[in-house]
Design a protein around this nucleic acid. Structure first.
Lengths: 211, 211
DNA sequence: CCATCTTTTGAGAGTCACTCTCATTTCATG
DNA sequence: CATGAAATGAGAGTGACTCTCAAAAGATGG
C-alpha cells in the first residue's frame, strides 16, 4: 500500500539465489534496528517528540546513517514493500475481471496476510495507522504514497483495457478508488483500529462500485 | 477548493457592515504583500530556492511576521477562500439533487468565476497548480486541504440524506469524489494547464458517476 | 491632545530535519 | 595480506519553524 523508495533497498526484489554477504546482512540489520528504535520511541513519547538523534542513539548508529537509510523521518515509519506485492497479485488476476473485483481479491489477500502474520506486524500496522490520524506530515506522506499506488493501479488497468496508463479516464478511476480506500483506512484508525479492516475495505469498494 | 485556516484571517466571514479600521486594512495589505512577494520570487527562482527570508524582505516585513500570517511556507501559496464559497454554493442547490450533479454546478460556477476574473487570478491558479506537480510539500499540503474539502462535502451530503457526516458510506463517497477531482487537476497541470479545466472536471465527475 | 491599553511587530536565540564533505573504518577480493 | 570499494561517523551548514521579550503603532476614553 505504501511505496518503497529508499536508497539502500534490500537488493531489489526477492533474488532467492543470492547468498547475501556479510555486508548486506549488516545493512538489513541496521535498517531493522532503525525501524525498531523508531517504533519504540514513538510509542513511548509520540512522533513529534521523537528526534532523529534519539532514533540514531537507540539504533546505535549515527544520525547521518539514519538519513542514509531513510530519506525522511516519515519514511522510517511508512516505507514498506506492499506496492510490488500488490502489483504482482493484481497482475495475477484474470484479465477479464473488473478492476474493482480484482482489487477486492488482492486486498483481501494482503490484509489477510498481515492479520495472520506475526503479532509484531499487526502492531506495526496499528501504530502506523494511528500516526496517520495524529500526525500531519505522516498523513501527508501516506497520501503521497497512495497516489503512487494509484499509478500502479493505472498501469494494470491500462494493460487490461488496452488504454494508455496516462488515459484520463483510467487515472480518474484509479485515484477515485484510492481516495475511497484511504478514507476507509482513516475511518478505521479514527475508531481505534478495533473494527474489521477487511470488512471496511470491502464495503468501501462496494460503495465505490455502485455509484 | 483549498482550506482557509490562518491566524489573522480577514475578520471571519463577510461582515459587510464592518467599516474596517486602519489596523485591519493594514493586515490585509501585509497579507497581500507577502503573497505577492512569494509569487514573484517563486516564478523567478522556483519554490525550493525561495526562502522565507527573501519573501519577508520582498514584502518588507520581518520573517517572524511572515509566520504570523501563514503557518507554513506552503500555506502562503495554497491558502485560499474557496471552501466557504463552495460550501455556500453547495447548500444553495436543491436538496433533492444528487450530490454529483450539485458538485458539477458548483464547480462550473467556481471555475467560471476564476476564468472570468482578473488575469492575475488566472496566473495564480496556474502557478499554484504547476507547483502542485513540481513540489512535493506543496502537493502534500494540497492533498491535505482536499481532504478537508471532503469533510465539507460530507457535511452537505449528510444534511441532505439525513445521515451523519461521519457515516462510513458518506465519507467514502465524498473522498472518492475528491480523489477523482484532484486527479483531474493533476492531469491538467501536467499538461501545462492548456486544456479546458472545466471540461476535465466535468468529465471526471461523469466518470466517477458512471462507476 | 494626551495617557493608557491592546495589538502588532521585529529581533534574537533556539530546535530540528535534512544536506554535504571528508577522513576513517570495515568488508570484499585476488 | 594488500588493495580497492563501500559504509560509517563527525562536523559544519542551511532553512523552516517556535518562543520570548521589548519596542512600535493603532484604538480608546477623557
Amino acid at each position: 500500500m505504501t511505496a518503497a523508495r529508499t536508497t539502500p533497498a534490500p537488493a531489489g526484489g526477492a533474488e532467492l539465489g543470492a547468498p547475501l554477504g556479510l555486508r548486506e546482512r549488516k545493512k538489513l540489520k541496521t535498517r531493522l534496528a532503525i525501524r525498531e528504535s523508531t517504533y519504540r520511541l514513538i510509542e513511548e513519547q509520540g512522533y513529534d517528540a521523537t528526534t532523529i538523534e534519539q532514533i540514531a542513539e537507540g539504533a546505535e548508529v549515527s544520525p547521518s546513517t539514519v538519513f542514509r537509510y531513510f530519506p525522511t523521518k516519515e519514511d522510517i515509519v511508512l516505507t514498506d514493500e506492499y506496492d510490488p506485492l500488490m502489483e504482482q497479485l493484481l497482475r495475477e488476476r484474470p484479465a477479464g475481471e473488473p478492476i474493482i473485483e480484482s482489487m477486492r481479491h488482492v486486498l483481501r489477500d494482503a490484509v489477510g496476510r498481515i492479520q495472520s502474520g506475526g503479532e509484531a506486524e499487526q502492531r506495526e500496522l496499528v501504530l502506523r495507522t494511528r500516526l496517520m490520524v495524529e500526525s500531519v506530515p505522516v498523513r501527508a506522506r501516506l497520501m503521497e504514497s497512495m497516489s503512487m499506488t494509484g499509478r500502479i493501479v493505472c498501469g494494470v488497468i491500462a494493460e487490461r483495457t488496452g488504454r494508455g496508463a496516462d488515459d484520463f479516464e483510467v487515472r480518474v478511476l484509479a485515484m477515485g478508488m484510492m481516495g475511497a480506500l484511504l478514507e476507509s483506512i482513516m475511518y478505521w484508525a479514527e475508531r481505534g483500529c478495533v473494527d474489521d479492516l477487511l470488512d471496511l475495505v470491502e464495503r468501501a469498494l462496494d460503495i465505490f462500485e455502485s455509484r
